[in-house]
Design a protein around this nucleic acid. Sequence first.
RNA 1: GUCCCCAUCGUCUAGCGGCCUAGGACACUACCCUUUCACGGUAGAUACACCGGUUCAAAUCCGGUUGGGGACGCCA
Length: 495
Amino acid sequence: STPVNTNHSPSNVRVRFAPSPTGYLHVGGARTALYNYLYAKRFGGKFILRVEDTDLERSTDESMRMQIEDLKWLGLNWDEGPNPETYEDMGPYGPYRQSRRKDIYMKYANQLLESGHAYYDFRTDAELDEIKEALVKAGKPPQIDAPAKIVPPSEARERIAKGEQAAIRFHVKEKRDYVVNDLVRGDVRFPSDMVGDFVCIRSNGMPVYNFCCAIDDALMKITHVFRAEEHLSNTLRQMMLFEALGLESPRFGHLSFILGPDKQKLSKRHGATSCHDFKLKGYLPEALNNFILLSGWSSPDGREILSREEQISLFTHERFNSAPAVFDETKLLWMNSMYLRALPHDELWNRVEPFLKEAGISVPQAKDAAWRDQALTAFKTSMQTLADAPKLFEALDDTKFSIKDDAAEVKGWDESKKVWQAWKAELVGHASSRISEAEFTAMQDRVKVSAAVKGKHLFMPIRVAVIGQPHGTELKILVPLLDKSSLIKRVEQCL
RNA sequence: GUCCCCAUCGUCUAGCGGCCUAGGACACUACCCUUUCACGGUAGAUACACCGGUUCAAAUCCGGUUGGGGACGCCA
């Protein structure tokens, strides 16, 4: 059986997140990263970031940097891996980018070659396609097996030196069952003939995922691997490699998928799926973290809003859900609004400001901390995401004031003009440039009397004269946030 | 096609043989609060995929069926 890394005393826990740098960090990947991170922190272990960039066609440095930004945004800091600022290796087991570990992989490939666990394969793509096609036609899985005659390594190397190309394939010789004791799914039994002779090193010299992954996990002394379910069957290949190479295997836990509303794997056509998308949509990283935590894991007491510290102290692999989870943005929205409200106002303002700037909203009054505090108190319960801030703060930006379409009915009322005239008179007669809540209430009462209007025929015209629409935040909160002069300009526009 | 994984309210989930006429959360509905909109409060509707077995007792254990997903790449 495969030797398993049993070096599991709490302080030795070493886990890794190993993304391939193609595009932004996906929410599924973020969840995998979170779970590994929490597991490391829970046991005082190390969290390692390893970049799996062996697919030269698709991997880019830019994607790596984007994913690093996303991980930083989520606050999932790693102990070893590319330095988050310089991208240079940090930690004793580097390089942490697989494209820079070719020599290491080659050494192990040679070891397999010498021990007869691997062979050079000179067959061309066309030949292999032909073989697969014939297998499919015969109703067999399209697995490549060894050619009739295996070229001995020394002879193969001579041919390669002369310019021929060959891949190195692992040779699956024995037919037997392999059992993974999966941390999420329990014992899973794989028959060895489930895989063919898989490629370890491509004919261009670049190693392949399963090969790198197994070697790196062993060399980086990884103790636990939490990864997506799609890798479950890869585990068989990796077990074969650990065994043939005499390396220690980590323990595995295969996480179920995050699905779209149609129960298909979450993808671009479901809308926002990358952390970057959610960032742009105004979600807080703490909310996104907390939400993805709960899609596939639950806390023992059923509490859902958990601080990072609580997440760490509660985290255990025993509470993973082995069934797939549908991603429900409605609940994320709710969670985001909870986090938004809980933020101290200074911090909330820091996060809101870029969204206002982006929307071209200018509120010079915000220089005043008391004003900010008041405004945020008024608006934060109406915000689900930071992207909701602009349309709220717009009401306080004089340059953006306009009478909205839904004020049409109010504009048509006979009483409105009388109310506006009385309201303007109140404003003009008001001594100071700001109006307190109590002052506003008194002013409103006097308008009621002088215009002889009450109820919604009083309220709504004033509201329209303040924010340009008949529905919105309470006036007694809004009015004190605006200068007398701008209130006068607004009511004049109504008149 | 072969192998593997999965199956509780619309959604996230609790449940690991009796505490379950199945609990919580989001969403939904109604009412209350509110001279608007939100916030908040209270109440309500809604689920063990199906069929067999094991057991005194099954959402829970076992088998099968159905359904969904994954793997079978010189992608990761």
